[in-house]
Design a protein around this nucleic acid. Structure first.
Lengths: 185, 185
DNA sequence: CCAATGTATCTCAGCGCTAAGGCATCCGTG
DNA sequence: CACGGATGCCTTAGCGCTGAGATACATTGG
């Protein structure tokens, strides 16, 4: 691990990555070094890879979702309801906060899931403005079937990282999320 | 650093994160632990945070782009042309590969940029199918103005990470990108 | 109790992207 | 050289999301 860390540190200091694998971001950073040598573009090492990694992972995860007739948005709603525990019921606002999308997006996601019979929407007893979104038995069965496959895909994607790398990865993201104000609830 | 790594390792082993800051993903993992205790949901520690971090960072970066009348898609095209060096000219296919979007998306991005006078599209001399997309002086001036602000935003976002954390973060992403087949060109 | 403000959800126009396909051009092979 | 497949770019329908706003209901303070 120390060898790897040392390599990346050299890279951050502006010394080209010496490893056998130069990736897209290495190329981008090298180009900027030639064109705007006075600028410190080292943050691109992080954010360039974050973007590419997110997009590639997203495509890969959607492949698994597709095998169950779902996409990431639908899976997200069903999984959020499922993991909330009995009675597998949340409000649109709760789903909105968890998914980090607008209320309009949740309305449309629920329209689609309701049309497929995977969730129901009922009026709230205690708040006339609010609705209760409940997982149907069909929705429950579907998410419980899809989840193990999804986890298998995630495990497979992480196979190339050892425990220390994974832990350091999580640690860095946890720190950045805290700085960006991400918090539970 | 070792303390932090140790904490995350304990977390990966299924022991709740003991730190003072529990984030959204900690909560998700705890819920799954209660509902599906037989499943190893530890990869969610990585991919849940990757998604949330990407979305928050993307929103933050777009704020800076917006100050220059741009969004991430437009900035990406202009920056790709700018860092390619004189004569700041690439084909739509080159831009497509760099941006990881479809050809239709590039066509539309170029329509918008061309309408604003930030790039030009001309026929290729050597290949009748191909086009040459060139940065105009206005496009050049705009990206050179926006880039320092963009880098300042990225530096600010990384302020909470020390060098070792940053290097480990980059190392993990580089490994995963290689496993996913991301390569230059 | 009322008025003012806040909250929960839905509506809808507009945006950028994808997927599929069209067209022109290039290139390798027989 | 002719032909068939590959390539480069564009077109278009459709999709999911955002942002702005509408509606209905809840809460707060006087």
């Amino acid at each position: 691990m120390w060898l790897t860390v040392t390599s990346s540190l050299r890279n951050l200091a502006g010394i080209p990555y010496p490893g056998p694998v130069a990736d897209h971001v290495d190329r981008v950073v090298a180009q900027w070094g030639a064109e705007r040598p006075e600028l410190d573009v080292s943050p691109m090492e992080v954010f360039g890879r974050l973007k590419r990694l997110y997009r590639l992972v997203d495509a890969e995860l959607n492949r698994t979702f597709g095998e169950h007739g779902l996409d990431a948005a639908s899976f997200d709603v069903l999984a959020t309801l499922r993991r909330s525990g009995p009675p597998y019921r949340l409000t649109p606002t709760g789903l909105m906060q968890s998914a980090m999308v607008t209320s309009g997006a949740i309305t449309q996601r629920l329209d689609r899931l309701e049309a497929r019979g995977l969730v129901t929407r009922t009026a709230s007893d205690v708040d006339g403005r609010s609705r209760e979104v409940t997982l149907t038995p069909e929705g429950y069965a579907l998410i419980d079937r899809a989840l193990p496959d999804h986890l298998a895909t995630e495990h497979r994607l992480l196979a190339g990282l050892d425990d220390a790398q994974t832990a350091a990865f999580v640690d860095a993201m946890r720190t950045l999320l805290a700085a960006l104000g991400d918090s539970p609830k």
